[in-house]
């Protein structure tokens, strides 16, 4: 069963001078087993949108259903539905609070009332997932870490919950290049092997190209485009309107093409991009 947003409108601080409509009549269905990216310019409503997926924010009007259960309902069913959705916040500081990294990551599993041994096992696995060495970091304070290390700790805390739906708000921001690539690959593996449904917010079309099967562009609280990435990357008008940029390889190949090299711009990986250029060079010799 999916996560469904039905005509969701969200207004921050209604009836105050700060009133702001951050989402306007958004309807989306996140199918089970899908991998969805949410992109859009600063302030377009991405974080507001994803915070609806596990009920941190409740729609001002409209409904959010997880596996058929309305998150706004009271009682056990709604709580259980919310727990199916694990959420990594945009700023990791907003979700770290325990004294040590290990305690922080164990917090969620403890709430699920799992046995001690299983909790430790999950903490170890989650730290391994984000490449934080267990022995080195388990007793460190989460607030005395570097920015990238903090983000890894925050992601580990949600991975340890083993949620059915995993929602990540700009998970690779602040990670170094290898850390970013490793994390993306591991999320893809999780998706493939464990059939976990992924929703992630990203400004990085290269990351989206390599992972997602669907991308939603947000613009001023509305859905601007909802497409397969391979198509979305060539929607120039929408990309510009959303303050985004095509993947770097597509951008480079398009520039070469504009200067007269007959190269196919539809390449998202280094290997494909180089192959397309070589092919064009062999066929044309020069521009």
């Amino acid at each position: 069963m999916p996560i469904e947003l039905k005509h969701v409108t969200y207004t921050y601080m209604p009836q105050t001078p700060f009133e702001r409509v951050a989402l306007q009549d958004v309807s989306l269905t996140i199918e089970e087993g899908s991998f969805t990216a949410i992109a859009g310019h600063t302030g377009s409503g991405k974080s507001t949108l994803v915070q609806h997926l596990n009920g941190i924010l409740q729609p001002t009007s409209g409904q959010v259903l997880v596996d058929g259960t309305d998150l706004a309902a009271r009682g056990k069913a709604a709580l259980a539905a919310r727990r199916k959705v694990g959420m990594v916040f945009q700023y990791p500081e907003h979700q770290l609070f325990e004294e040590t990294v290990a305690l922080d990551i164990a917090f969620g599993p403890k709430n699920l009332e799992l046995p001690e041994a299983e909790i430790e096992q999950r903490v170890r696995q989650a730290m391994e997932f984000v490449h934080l060495d267990y022995e080195t970091y388990k007793d460190r304070s989460p607030f005395q870490l570097s920015g990238g290390q903090m983000r890894r700790a925050a992601i580990a805390g949600v991975i340890a919950l083993q949620p059915k739906y995993l929602v990540l708000d700009e998970p690779t921001a602040g990670l170094d290049p290898r850390g970013r690539e490793d994390l993306l690959q591991r999320i893809v593996q999780l998706h493939k092997k464990e059939k976990i449904t992924i929703v992630f917010v990203s400004h990085n079309m290269d990351d989206i190209a390599r992972t997602a099967d669907r991308v939603v562009f947000m613009d001023q609280g509305k859905v601007l485009l909802d497409e397969a990435p391979a198509k979305a990357f060539f929607a120039e008008k929408e990309i510009a309107q959303a303050g985004l940029a095509a993947p770097q390889m597509v951008t480079l190949l398009t520039k070469l093409r504009e200067k007269g090299l007959a190269v196919d711009p539809a390449a998202f990986t280094m290997e494909d991009g180089v192959a397309h250029i070589m092919k064009a060079l062999r066929e044309a010799k020069s521009c």
């Binding site: 951008t251 070469l256 200067k259 070589m278 060079l281």
Partner: peptide, 25 residues
């Protein structure tokens, strides 16, 4: 990578523009 496949290119290529200039002279 292009150099490794035998394409002759100048040493200093950092931006898309550098590469476009070098390939589309």
């Amino acid at each position: 990578r292009l150099r490794q496949q035998g394409v002759r290119l100048p040493e200093r290529i950092l931006t898309d523009e550098d590469l476009v200039m070098a390939l589309c002279r």
